[in-house]
Amino acid sequence: MATVKFKYKGEEKEVDISKIKKVWRVGKMISFTWDEGGGKTGRGAVSEKDAPKELLQMLEKQ
């Protein structure tokens, strides 16, 4: 499965696309949330040019 790689608060992170729940556009950035388990929700953002095609497809479906 595809993953999204991004930096959050200076830390490199990687999230499996299948865990992503919500995707939206903020200017030229793609923001998203995912389920971290245990009732926690993670947040992240990646530039439109660095976003994997699967993430962009999720954005178009909404």
Rank of each mutant, 00 (worst) to 15 (best):
V4Q: 00
K61V: 13
E12W: 15
V23L: 07
P52V: 05
Q57M: 15
R25W: 06
V15Q: 02
M29S: 14
R43W: 06
W34R: 00
L56N: 06
V23E: 00
V23C: 10
I30Q: 00
E36K: 07
Q62S: 14
I17W: 01
I30M: 05
L59D: 03
T33L: 07
V15I: 11
V46G: 01
L56W: 11
K28R: 09
G42D: 12
G10W: 01
E60M: 08
T3I: 10
E11W: 03
I30E: 00
K7V: 07
S18L: 11
T33Q: 09
K49C: 15
G39Q: 10
K13I: 14
F6N: 01
T41M: 15
E11M: 10
L59G: 04
G38Y: 03
E54V: 06
V23H: 02
Q57A: 10
E54L: 05
D35K: 04
L56P: 02
E48H: 05
I30P: 00
T33M: 08
V4I: 08
G10N: 04
K40C: 15
L55G: 00
A2E: 07
D50S: 11
I20N: 00
K49N: 09
L55A: 01
K21H: 11
D16F: 07
V4C: 01
F32R: 00
K40L: 08
D35P: 10
K9S: 03
R43S: 11
M29V: 14
D50E: 09
P52C: 04
Q57L: 04
V26I: 11
I30W: 02
D16Y: 07
L55P: 00
K5N: 02
G38E: 08
S47C: 13
K49Y: 08
I30V: 09
V23Y: 08
V15Y: 01
K53Q: 13
G42K: 11
L59M: 06
D16W: 04
K9F: 09
M58F: 04
G42L: 13
V23R: 01
G42M: 10
A51T: 13
V4P: 01
K21R: 08
E36D: 09
D50W: 10
K22H: 15
V46M: 09
K9A: 05
G27L: 09
L59V: 10
W24F: 09
A45F: 05
G27R: 07
R43G: 08
K40H: 13
K21V: 13
W24I: 14
E12S: 07
R43T: 15
E36Q: 11
K13S: 02
P52F: 02
I20Q: 00
W24T: 07
S18M: 11
K9E: 12
D50T: 07
G27F: 09
K53L: 13
K22P: 02
K53T: 14
E36V: 13
M1D: 05
Q62Y: 03
R25S: 06
V26W: 05
L55T: 01
T33F: 11
K61R: 04
V23Q: 03
E48D: 14
E12L: 13
K40M: 11
V23N: 01
K53N: 07
G38R: 08
K61N: 10
T3Y: 03
E11L: 06
I30H: 01
K7F: 07
G27S: 12
L59S: 13
A2Q: 04
V46P: 00
S31G: 06
K61P: 09
M29W: 13
D50C: 14
G37S: 06
E14L: 03
R25T: 10
K5Q: 02
E11I: 12
E14D: 05
G39A: 13
V46E: 01
T33N: 06
V26G: 07
K21D: 11
P52H: 04
S18V: 11
T41D: 13
K22V: 15
K49V: 13
L56D: 03
